[in-house]
Design a protein around this nucleic acid. Structure first.
Lengths: 352, 352
DNA sequence: CTCGTCATAGAAAACGTTGTCTAAACGTAG
DNA sequence: CTACGTTTAGACAACGTTTTCTATGACGAG
């Protein structure tokens, strides 16, 4: 007689004994992939019910091979944009009967590596890296190694919202058009009559910053306006506080710009507060635009003109691409479109 | 010679063969819990490096029993408040070398059940349910069953931000003081001179709503003010749009309130927009307060007076309580404090 | 009546680890 | 020189499934 007090899940063996059948039969009832007599089946089902049996994934994974688990790795789950992407991944994975492992890194490459290791141990079917990265030689070789490791284990590296690694690296890449969005948004500002635009963003090595910055510069160049290298505030963390500080500092001197291009909506929120606290008006004195179109953009007053990024779609697409990928192809790459959302935070500059 | 093209992770056996030692020795080098001669160890380590070996968690879990995995289940990862809690859980779990499984339910009890089943299959060391729930008899028996199932399998049900299930149910509960926060916030409004306060919130069966509503009512009662049953807008989804609609509708009639108690900051954001769009001012014409103190509360103008809820701490505390719990205790329960954060959205009502 | 053919059920071998038990060297104390 | 630790390493049985492969009745056709 088994001791009810000892802590363990009941196993297929317990079920088999209670139902008076063999292990195989129970397994077949659970899987439903083999004929089992009606009476036997119901007897087994009763036993399963009674013992509250659930199969042990680990035992299953050991035999079978294919694991219905995917992992995703993100800097910080609290970022509203990342949260959307995570949601997309989770939804689409769940639809395919996969369960998700999460890990956060706070942007630390060492923790990212450790997280990938953990997911390799878990034999995840795919590993999603969500969000930008600091791009340099070390990063590229590291990622290439990871991509090959995962590939040779039958898994898959998926880059979500960051650029591809190069030819021959077995990875799935789904990014969105950072440069195009920034180009369109900058063109919008120029069209409204702005010539001196303060760009407030991250470190130029960060892939997201690199893309948005490139679009900004290209738009000014195409439209025949010089770029004033003094009008860049770079190297920020993407926080409200950073945006507030940098813009406040700029406003304490002579105000030599009519618009602020904030690299994310969160930063734009800080920038807007800085303009207000300097006793100025948005958009009459200073126009402000952001990027990402998170819910905050709607709640700010005036509403924030920004670039819509389909983060949830990004997550969904990445899962589809990675899990339904045809056997042959090593590299995969697609880019999702972005577009400007016009609200009230950017208008024509007041005449001086 | 192994075929480099077939997709599989190398195993401990491959490493053992390459290093010319037994399986046991490799296992010991990896675990580091048993003496291995220096020369042997380095030979094994080289082989591990060479083959890019990582242990198979599933095989490990099968033997050992204890899994370093926890699961958490949440309505929606995109909610800023939930995201904080998730972050707390993830951080604290990672510190203990645990990895997290996520599932989202969109508030559907059936999906919640399915998610718990999956986590039971994964032999998660604990399962965290984050956020409120619709409380009724079915819910309680369901939860009690789940709690006992998990407990008897050596796992643990953890309720995070919802009330305890009752005596004798083996579960860990970490909640925060919904009622106290609402009491304090209501008292604040009354102290500022408000007598007619519109309460805008969820369904009264939802545990979060129940708590906040109770605090609201108790404060009015204690301060000797009658509760006008006409001043409740209940049954909302917790979205900006719901808040906007309900408050807009109220403002189209005679304005018979001087303040709005919004049950969450997100709803408060919608309420504030509704007041503005009606051509009125916050706080001069209508004061508004929220609940949760998410980042949005800072970004709104005027800044939102609200109740600070320590969501991240909630997550951390829950992990600590669940994972470090002493062997004996079946029930655990603690409540975290909340406090009012005063910003600019609630002031004295204008004299009529 | 006998011989396939079904339908159903059991036996047993994987799967990749860990841990326990055993064994072989090699020193060293008596 | 023997006896006995010590150190190090191997063999092997779990762990809980799935998946062949094999076995047993029952039943219909010849």
């Amino acid at each position: 007689m088994p001791d009810d007090l000892d802590r363990r899940q009941s196993t297929i063996k317990d079920v088999a004994e209670l139902a008076g059948v063999s292990l195989s039969t129970v397994s077949r009832v659970v899987a439903g992939n083999y004929p089992v007599a009606r009476s036997t089946r119901s007897r087994v089902q009763r036993a399963i019910e009674e013992l509250n049996y659930v199969a042990n994934t680990h035992a299953r994974a050991l035999g079978g091979g294919a694991t219905r688990t995917v992992g995703f790795i993100v800097n910080d789950v609290r970022g509203p944009a990342f949260a959307e992407a995570v949601h997309g991944v989770e939804q689409e994975a769940a639809r395919r009967g996969h369960i998700c492992l999460v890990a956060t890194t706070d942007g630390d490459p060492a923790r990212e590596l450790a997280a990938i290791q953990l997911m390799r141990e878990q034999r995840a079917a795919a590993v999603f890296l969500i969000g930008g990265a600091y791009d340099n030689a070390a990063y590229r070789t590291r990622m290439a190694d990871i991509a090959r490791s995962l590939d040779s284990a039958g898994s898959r590296l998926v880059l979500c919202g960051r650029p591809p690694l190069g030819d021959g690296i077995p990875a799935t890449v789904v990014e969105y058009d950072n440069e195009g969005g920034a180009y369109a948004l900058t063109s919008f500002l120029v069209g409204r009559g702005h010539r001196r635009i303060l760009y407030v963003g991250g470190h130029p090595d960060f892939t997201t910053t690199a893309g948005r910055l490139a679009g900004f510069r290209r738009a000014l160049a195409d439209l025949g306006h010089p770029v004033d290298e003094g009008l860049f505030e770079l190297g920020l963390e993407f926080t409200r506080a950073s945006g507030y500080e940098r813009v406040s500092a700029r406003l304490r001197g002579e105000r030599d710009f009519t618009a602020v291009f904030a690299e994310t909506d969160v930063v734009a929120g800080g920038a807007m507060a800085a303009v207000f606290d300097a006793g100025l008006s948005v958009p009459d004195d200073v126009s402000i635009v952001g990027y990402d179109d998170i819910p905050l953009a709607t709640d700010l007053r005036p509403g924030l003109t920004t670039v819509r990024v389909p983060y949830e779609e990004l997550g969904r697409t990445a899962v589809r691409a990675a899990l339904d990928r045809p056997a042959g192809r090593a590299e995969q790459h697609q880019t999702l479109g972005t577009h400007v959302i016009i609200r009230q935070s950017a208008e024509r500059p007041a005449q001086r």
